[in-house]
Simulated assay, not measured.
Amino acid sequence: MATRGPRRTAGHGVLLDPEVIAEMRAHLPDVADRTVAAITEEVPSYQDALSGSMGEIIRNAVQLALGGFLSLAGGRRGADPGTPAAPSVEGAYQLGRGEARNGRTTDALLSAYRIGARVAWREMSATAVRSGIPADRLAGFAELVFAYIDELSAASVAGHTDELATSGRVRERLLERLAKDLLDGASTDEVVEAAARAEWPEPKTLTAVIVPEAQARRVRGSLPGVVLQAVDRSDIPDRALLLVPDAHGRERAGLLAALGRGCIAGPPRPWLQVRASYDRALRAHESGLTGDTELHLTQLVLTADPEALADLRARALAPLADLRPAVAEKLTDTLRSWLFHHGRREDVAAELFVHPQTVRYRMNQLRDLYGDRLDDPETVLELTIALSA
């Protein structure tokens, strides 16, 4: 069965005589008061909103809507948008926008419209009946009441939707600007001001997370709080950068659980210092690492300066430089194992699948090459770092 669309007021002829319209207009203030009172009583969320100056604004809006309706009932509306009912529809549209700005849904507003239709029909139909309106016109009058409410309701819903879309886009741009300021080294005052403009609550920490573009929406939606997303990052093509608030301590487990394949999470940092979290996540990403950067600290430290590491390795292994490549490789493997196993010959032999005597022989060769330096802590540290990469 087809779904019925909103009832329309177009096409209705003259339903009420001018004298009846004039009598109804004379009672509009009283009808508006009773309508507002009914709404206040039956829609709890409007009990406070309709008090004081706001109540007067709504009361005037009700009178405007009822006046527009009476213009329709008198047959004064045409196709021209400047006809008497147009201000009522525009008022309903703006009312919907106002409800969105106040953080309310359309549920209460649509309930108010239904109550208003009921009160208006009760009051106006009584006047129509007293004036002797024929039954067929009374039926048409009832249809017009509810068609008119349909149009006002639709206008308010459209206004509510448009306001949410507009404010949502504006806030999203403000949040993107905030992320840019955080990453590009803006001053503390500039960043704090940007956060205030975006109505973004300042967290204790932020964690930079690099995710594949295809996963960004899912990851962002699965995390609590307002997650910032930096856009147009040329240093991570085909990747999205998220800045996740307060994902430290016990909350980090929830963040890591939300990540999929190919994601990398930097460390939590005080929110104004999130650039440090991003720098680490970026280096991990460039090194082909994924997951939690806290699990890759050793590798990140060792690869922080590749040229310095290469120079250190060349200097530390200089005594082996003149050996045949095969011999140098065996001695290097033995030296690495000897360092990592703290000189335990049996463990070294087990790792290298050789006899302990072979380990002794090779270590004697290494001592001939290095001399007393193998007992020097600074040399041992350099060799350990050089052979760890």
Score class of each variant (00 low, 15 high):
240 A>C: 10
283 R>I: 04
234 S>V: 08
268 P>W: 12
222 S>Q: 12
199 E>V: 07
254 G>W: 13
176 E>W: 00
181 D>P: 01
269 R>Y: 06
275 R>F: 01
212 P>W: 11
255 L>N: 05
263 C>V: 06
258 A>N: 07
200 W>N: 07
270 P>V: 04
222 S>A: 15
210 I>R: 13
206 L>T: 05
263 C>G: 15
191 V>R: 09
186 A>K: 05
166 T>D: 14
271 W>Y: 12
237 P>W: 09
175 L>N: 05
258 A>D: 08
177 R>F: 08
232 D>L: 05
221 G>I: 10
254 G>C: 11
183 L>R: 03
172 E>T: 12
205 T>L: 08
284 A>Y: 00
230 A>H: 11
169 R>Y: 08
174 L>H: 09
190 E>N: 02
188 T>Q: 12
227 V>A: 02
192 V>T: 08
205 T>R: 11
294 E>A: 15
231 V>M: 06
245 P>F: 08
281 A>C: 03
283 R>A: 15
266 G>Y: 07
180 K>E: 08
178 L>I: 02
228 L>I: 01
163 E>R: 15
229 Q>S: 06
208 A>T: 04
262 G>Y: 07
193 E>F: 04
189 D>N: 08
216 A>Q: 06
247 A>S: 14
295 L>E: 13
162 D>F: 03
196 A>Q: 04
193 E>H: 04
265 A>Q: 11
205 T>V: 11
185 G>V: 02
268 P>Y: 13
246 D>W: 09
267 P>H: 11
212 P>Q: 08
276 A>F: 07
164 L>P: 02
293 T>M: 02
289 L>C: 03
236 I>D: 04
173 R>H: 14
213 E>V: 14
280 R>W: 10
179 A>C: 04
243 L>D: 05
223 L>M: 08
187 S>W: 01
216 A>R: 10
249 G>S: 13
232 D>K: 08
230 A>I: 03
161 T>L: 12
239 R>L: 14
188 T>I: 11
262 G>D: 10
183 L>P: 01
204 K>R: 15
286 E>P: 01
256 L>S: 02
255 L>M: 06
231 V>Q: 13
263 C>S: 15
247 A>C: 10
207 T>V: 10
245 P>L: 12
277 S>L: 04
206 L>G: 04
287 S>H: 08
291 G>D: 00
202 E>R: 13
246 D>F: 09
257 A>F: 06
204 K>L: 14
271 W>S: 09
257 A>E: 13
181 D>S: 04
197 R>K: 11
164 L>H: 14
248 H>K: 11
235 D>T: 03
166 T>M: 14
179 A>Q: 05
228 L>N: 00
231 V>L: 13
237 P>C: 12
221 G>T: 09
205 T>P: 06
177 R>A: 13
184 D>M: 00
